[in-house]
Write a protein that binds this DNA or RNA. Structure first.
Lengths: 192, 192
DNA sequence: TAGAATCGCGAGGCTCTCTCCGCTTGCGCC
DNA sequence: GGCGCAAGCGGAGAGAGCCTCGCGATTCTA
């Protein structure tokens, strides 16, 4: 949704330069300040006009999604790497906890993963679907060996992950000691 | 935090009227539209000037907290009512699930309970402390009979509740069938 | 190198938050 | 009842943010 570098002709040289510059500034800014940065400010820091930012990223959401993509993709790659792991249960729960852990440390990533009107990861978005699909593979294997309760879908896990992140973030901000991922992971195990 | 009806002299009659009118409008508006309503719009609907709204509720947060208070208090009352229930484990988990369930059905309540910069329920706020304290009693009894894993605090549970709500809301928006509260509640049980 | 397509830019419209201060209203006292 | 004043009201307007529009500049293509 963000833009159209796929099938259309490649961007003109100056356009590519602008786009990358904006994206880099946005990444830095978002990692530091979370989702509070304004388009005007991004444009100013990137040394371009606001119009240029909007040309490449028509909405806040498009920009945030573009920034988010890079980070999420690492999580997806991890998931793919674990698709043939020896212990499917361990792989699944380890991945879940690791994602929560890394995401909780990144302000912008949290803001974006958490629900709310500003997030790019709405239910139904492509990114969201990819995310759920990546989870599905890990999940299916873990369920097959009885490590995860049946009935849970990739979407369910994605939602739980997000919820867990919210909890984890709050816990950290008050220096809580319980790892929320441990609690939620236990909840995903077969009951009894 | 919201205002000062406690120790100072009572509000003048017209001020009290204005305050209540604004609060009522805000309640209605928030329940319908979530947190998107503007102060200008609230003022217009309430038939007062924007200045008046700001006089009573200096910030968005103060207004939202005032609205939230009423809803939260019912949850707290429920918790108090269950403080002497026969089965502490059942009381604790039942309360948790019920709160998630009711909150998930109320747009504004969700918006406010979920994390994010606009929420009144920041860690450290009075409301947040009351909430955690109410949970503490239910929790302690449930832990004493071994229904809930030790080590978990009221704050932890409050955070988990919020996370669970995020997950539940997303699950509902895509018509998921798993009750997130069930998963999270299982996670709070003693492991093994 | 010239024409066409694309891009850059920032003024400005719109909305939203919040402030400021002159005007109005209710309250207590004579 | 009438008076004085503290308390409250209101809305213009500052400031910030989001986004659009269209002309001039730049790059690509032939």
């Amino acid at each position: 949704m963000g833009d159209d570098h796929s099938s259309a002709r490649p961007l003109r040289a100056d356009a590519r330069r602008s786009r990358e510059r904006v994206l880099q500034i946005a990444q830095e800014a978002l990692a530091g300040d979370g989702l509070t940065i304004s388009f005007d400010e991004i444009a100013r820091r990137a040394g371009v006009g606001v119009g240029t930012v909007y040309r490449h990223f028509p909405t806040e959401e498009a920009l945030f999604e573009a920034v988010l993509l890079g980070r999420i993709e690492r999580f997806l790659a991890d998931a793919r790497g674990l698709a043939t792991a020896e212990d499917p249960g361990r792989a699944f729960f380890g991945w879940f906890a690791k994602v929560v852990d890394e995401a909780a440390a990144n302000q912008a990533l949290c803001d974006m993963l958490e629900s709310g009107s500003r997030t790019a990861l709405r239910p139904g978005s492509t990114l969201e679907d990819d995310f759920a699909a990546a989870i599905d593979r890990l999940l299916a294997r873990a369920q097959r060996v009885g490590a995860v309760r049946p009935g849970l879908t990739g979407q369910d896990v994605a939602d739980l992950l997000r919820g867990c992140l919210v909890a984890e973030r709050r816990a950290r901000s008050r220096r809580g000691t319980v790892r929320m991922a441990d609690v939620v992971c236990d909840g995903m195990r077969p009951s009894g």
